[in-house]
Design a protein around this nucleic acid. Structure first.
Lengths: 247, 247
DNA sequence: AACCTCAGTTGATCTGGGTCAAAGAAAAAT
DNA sequence: ATTTTTCTTTGACCCAGATCAACTGAGGTT
């Protein structure tokens, strides 16, 4: 259960501090202190990890599976405000509770640390505080990019944007097809996609069908997606076409 | 020009590190080092402070006026992703450039620090890094709250949400009217409001007229707004009505 | 005083995506 | 194997907000 896993981007995902390529966790001796307060939690698909307003006793990171952050209005309208993939951090050091619901979208394994000792460590270890700032800035960039998607893009562009994001983080390069072909399994229901995109599930379904008909994506079953041309998908998403998808 | 100003929330706005009630800047001797690398810049309404993609040589905070962060697609669609009011921080320590345009919406005075020495200070002063993490988490919360607005609220709710945010940060309690009455000048054109809300300027104008007709707001001229009942406005915004607006 | 320009309003019409409804398809339960 | 449930697709219709267009009104400028 304490196997160090590597995701597609080369990050160590068995650790609350997300890394690029190298796992500082394993290099910095002072971080081994984290090991002693580390524990794992499993959540089933659909299960709530944290309720909005609850006190959070822990911070941690996703080891496997997908979790989502959602906000809900009293009348039931919901908006997903974040998608947590393996290696993503969960928690708000220095904050009492969560303003969002955190829900397991698939079965999820989380690597957790009790909040108190983690924060004490953070205060003593500038490296962790610095890394956390980095990660929070990344999340802020992602949230702001998503504001453009929600505010100004059409339904088709929204779907293409979401597929593009998931593909970049989740997909493995297919060995068989031409270069640039990506294959992955959608970890979200149509309804979850709709909640992320500010659409209805019917519109999501229609636009998926349209993208399939137009050859932008291929679908086997409902969830298995092949993207024959990543550049084409990004055009559909309305993004700058800078060609390189692994920059 | 180095007068310490206090805004309505009691924050020191003459400083890149935003405070609550007390200005640590003035309390912590080590932060006086910041004084020696501090300088001011003025921007006229409409002027660009930073172009998206540019290298940013400085970090700083807004002293007076309003600036906005915007993202623009190739075809001209634009989405405002942040509103910078006095005391708000601008800059991305540890990052090269800005992924957004930063524009002066009104005349703006900024208090700046060259980035290099600021970052060196930050590395030496855990207090600053910690404060910066706090601020970034606040911005992330604001961005995510805005995702709900953009993704799920109606045009009327969007307008009410924006007015509510500006009122809370910008307004002074009117002494004459009943308790809870707020008065302020809108610092945004109808077009800027539209860019923030993911609407067209015509829809903004129509909904402003509708809110006026329904007595939710009063308008003198185009910009001077009176909110007779803050609770009512928050209901219109679809927010939880928790009563207290200065919690 | 006539002429701009720029911000805002209002009306008429159009349409993308929402809503309501029905049916298929795959997984889970009996 | 059949029923139930959960997810998805597709069709028909509608409406909130976009689009297109005309007009108002407050400053400035000469």
């Amino acid at each position: 259960m304490s196997v160090q896993t590597q995701n597609a981007a080369g990050n160590c995902s068995d650790c609350p501090i997300r890394h690029r390529a190298v796992c500082a966790h394993c290099e910095k001796p002072e971080l081994n202190e984290l090991e002693s307060i580390k524990y794992y939690r499993n959540f089933e698909a659909g299960q709530s990890i944290i309720w909005s307003g609850d006190k959070m006793g822990f911070v941690g990171s996703v080891v496997s599976g997908i979790a989502s952050l959602t906000q809900t209005m009293e009348d039931g309208r919901t908006q997903m405000v974040g998608l947590l993939l393996p290696s993503d951090f969960v928690g708000r050091p220095g904050r009492e509770g969560s303003p969002y619901d955190v829900t397991a979208t698939t079965d999820v394994v989380m690597c957790c640390f009790r909040k108190k000792p983690f924060e004490e460590m953070m205060a003593r270890t500038p490296h962790i505080a610095h890394r956390l700032l980095e990660m929070t800035l990344d999340e802020l960039d992602a949230a702001r990019e998503w504001m453009l998607v929600l505010g100004r893009k059409t339904a088709r562009e929204k779907i293409a944007s979401l597929l593009s994001i998931i593909a970049r983080r989740d997909a493995s390069l297919s060995s068989g097809g031409p270069v640039g072909t990506l294959v992955f399994d959608l970890p979200l229901t149509r309804e979850a996609m709709a909640d992320y995109l500010g659409l209805t599930l019917e519109t999501v379904s229609r636009q998926m069908s349209a993208l399939k008909k137009d050859g932008v994506i291929q679908l086997e079953g409902k969830r298995h997606v092949t993207i024959p041309d990543m550049g084409r998908l990004m055009e559909e998403a309305g993004d700058d076409t800078d060609g390189g998808m692994l920059g």
